[in-house]
Simulated assay, not measured.
Amino acid sequence: MNTNYNRISEVSDAVMEKLEAAAEKVASVSIPSDIPHGDMPGDKIEIGDSHTAKAKTIFPKLVDELKKTIGSNKYGRAVVAVCGGSGVGKSEIASCLSFLLEQAGIGSYTMSGDNYPHRIPMYNDAERLHVFRESGIRAMVDAGVMSQEHMEVLKKWQIAEDDANKAHAETDTWFKSYLEGGSKGLNDYLGTPKETDFEEVDQIMKAFKDGADKLYLKRMGRDEASLWYDEVDMSSKQVLIVEWTHGNSDYMSQVDIPVLLNSTPQETLEHRRSRNRDGKLDSPFTTMVLELEQQKLVDQAHKAKIIITKAGELINYDEFKKLYNMD
């Protein structure tokens, strides 16, 4: 028993020394564009200068946090969550951070939280829409505005995938109850155990911190036949990085260091516009989903150990609150 404890202590001491050296040398490390990335099947990432720059900005602060966390774990391990909204660069920056750790001789694995919804993407998208529409129609009944005439109008908007468009409430006042009820129902689904198996993710992180030499990790593709588990060797890993919108969720208890890649709603919208080659904007429903997810990120931000802006500036929580005019 003492021999095992001594071995673990020696591993932890060695990791601490490597972390110290890594933080000092990070500026001179070159990050190639073809580095290993997360474990989401079919996930394609393109690492650019902005991603590497942000990773190098985050890294020294991450090292400070890792030294505290690894030092308090008897196996010399830590779980890092890289979270943020759509298009903020979670996969890319998490991969860069993992690469920097590996280059310093600190074993790191990048895991995608997008493998853990209860439904494959196609069915989960359909469930989100169903929840929104069912909740909206129930709200119309409760508000006393249900009628055949209103339903005929609503049906046309639904067919056109325009039934989450806030502009309709300006001309059709009854629509407000549908919109508010649908939004509330959707919010109660997004990023909750109804949508995602947070318990499984938490168990994986706990097993890692408890010294597991191997883990069975879920893989979720785009169809029902693309669902399986891989056995992953963790014997040489000290850091598990989880890249995921919901990485800072209250439904998990095993994340040691949440890293928030912040992007204001305006910045997110501009980014998505720039990525659409045909100039087509998101549907009103997709916009609603993004807005609700963004609010959840804002509500959870107080737990983040590291916050970086889209411009690449490290900020504290007080500075974050000023961005959102929070008291």
Rank of each mutant, 00 (worst) to 15 (best):
Phe59Glu: 01
Phe59Met: 00
Phe59Ile: 01
Phe59Lys: 00
Phe59Arg: 01
Pro60Cys: 04
Lys61Met: 13
Lys61Trp: 11
Val63Ala: 08
Val63Gly: 05
Val63Trp: 04
Val63Leu: 06
Val63Asp: 07
Asp64Lys: 11
Glu65Ala: 14
Glu65Gly: 09
Glu65Val: 09
Glu65His: 13
Glu65Ser: 14
Glu65Leu: 14
Leu66Val: 09
Leu66Glu: 05
Leu66Arg: 05
Lys67Ala: 10
Lys67Arg: 13
Lys67Val: 12
Lys68Ile: 06
Thr69Met: 09
Thr69Ile: 07
Thr69Asp: 11
Ile70Trp: 12
Ile70Val: 15
Ile70Met: 15
Gly71Thr: 06
Asn73Gln: 14
Asn73Cys: 13
Asn73Ile: 14
Lys74Gln: 15
Tyr75Thr: 14
Tyr75Ala: 13
Tyr75Pro: 12
Gly76Met: 03
Gly76Glu: 03
Gly76Tyr: 02
Gly76Thr: 01
Gly76Leu: 03
Gly76Trp: 03
Arg77Cys: 00
Arg77Val: 00
Arg77Trp: 00
Arg77Asn: 00
Ala78Tyr: 01
Ala78Cys: 07
Ala78Arg: 02
Ala78Thr: 01
Val79Gly: 08
Val79Arg: 05
Val79Ala: 12
Val80Ile: 07
Val80Met: 08
Val80Ala: 06
Val80Phe: 04
Val82Thr: 09
Val82Tyr: 09
Val82Gly: 11
Cys83Tyr: 15
Gly84Trp: 08
Gly84Asp: 12
Gly85Ser: 15
Gly85Arg: 12
Gly85Trp: 11
Ser86Thr: 14
Ser86Tyr: 10
Ser86Pro: 05
Ser86Gly: 07
Gly87Leu: 15
Gly87Pro: 11
Val88His: 05
Val88Met: 11
Val88Tyr: 05
Val88Asn: 10
Val88Pro: 06
Gly89His: 00
Gly89Ile: 00
Gly89Trp: 02
Lys90His: 10
Lys90Val: 04
Lys90Leu: 09
Lys90Ala: 08
Ser91Gly: 10
Ser91Pro: 05
Glu92Trp: 08
Glu92Met: 15
Glu92Arg: 13
Glu92Val: 10
Ala94Tyr: 03
Ala94His: 06
Ala94Leu: 05
Ser95Asp: 04
Cys96Lys: 07
Cys96Gln: 10
Cys96Asn: 10
Cys96Ser: 13
Leu97Val: 01
Ser98Ala: 14
Ser98Gln: 12
Phe99Ala: 09
Phe99Pro: 00
Leu100Ser: 02
Leu100Ile: 06
Leu100Glu: 01
Glu102Asn: 11
Glu102Met: 07
Glu102Gly: 06
Gln103Phe: 08
Gly105Ser: 13
Ile106Cys: 09
Ile106Arg: 07
Gly107Asp: 05
Gly107Lys: 02
Gly107Pro: 02
Gly107Gln: 04
Gly107Val: 03
Ser108Thr: 08
Ser108Val: 03
Tyr109Gly: 09
Tyr109Thr: 10
Thr110Gln: 09
Thr110Glu: 07
Met111Glu: 06
Met111Cys: 10
